[in-house]
Amino acid sequence: MYKLYYIQIKKEFEDISQERMANIGDFINIFDTTYLIVTEISAKDIYHKISMDSESSIFIIQCNIDEYYGWANKRVWTWLNEKKKLFR
């Protein structure tokens, strides 16, 4: 089952984390070091797959794709609407 996660990554881990996120799901960068990712794995598994070590500063929380609102770049809304189809 697919899940949507919000991920905040400390700047110094960003490049490596992006490479690793590409291997676990479809993601989009929404602001500086903030991402949304659709994957079938848990938040804990995401952390272990994208972190550098046990002290990497990464925040991950599961989101509800059925309810969202705000102001963002059009590409973010397009991405969300495309991914929302996976949850039907």
Rank of each mutant, 00 (worst) to 15 (best):
M1V: 08
Y2T: 04
Y2D: 11
K3F: 01
K3G: 03
Y5Q: 13
Y6C: 08
Y6A: 14
Y6M: 12
I7Q: 06
I7L: 07
Q8N: 15
I9S: 07
K10E: 14
K10Y: 13
K10A: 13
K10C: 05
K10Q: 12
K10F: 10
K11G: 00
E12I: 13
F13E: 15
F13R: 12
E14R: 14
D15R: 14
I16S: 11
S17M: 09
Q18S: 00
Q18T: 08
Q18N: 07
E19P: 02
R20T: 02
M21H: 09
I24S: 05
G25K: 03
D26V: 14
F27W: 15
I28K: 09
I28D: 10
I28N: 03
N29S: 07
N29Y: 03
F31V: 10
D32Q: 13
T33L: 05
T34S: 10
T34V: 09
T34N: 05
Y35I: 02
Y35C: 00
L36D: 03
I37E: 00
V38C: 11
V38S: 09
T39D: 01
E40P: 02
I41D: 07
K44L: 03
D45L: 00
D45A: 09
D45N: 10
D45P: 04
Y47L: 14
H48K: 15
K49A: 11
K49N: 13
I50S: 00
I50D: 04
I50H: 02
S51R: 11
S51M: 04
S56Y: 04
S56G: 04
S57G: 00
I58W: 04
I58N: 06
F59N: 14
I61D: 08
Q62F: 00
C63V: 05
C63S: 03
N64P: 09
N64R: 06
N64K: 09
N64S: 13
I65G: 13
D66R: 06
D66G: 11
Y68N: 05
Y68M: 00
Y69Q: 05
G70W: 03
A72G: 04
A72S: 12
K74V: 10
R75Y: 15
V76E: 10
W77S: 10
T78D: 12
W79G: 07
W79V: 06
W79Q: 07
N81L: 11
N81A: 01
E82R: 13
E82V: 10
E82S: 11
K84S: 00
K84E: 08
K85T: 12
L86Q: 09
F87V: 03
R88H: 11
R88Q: 10
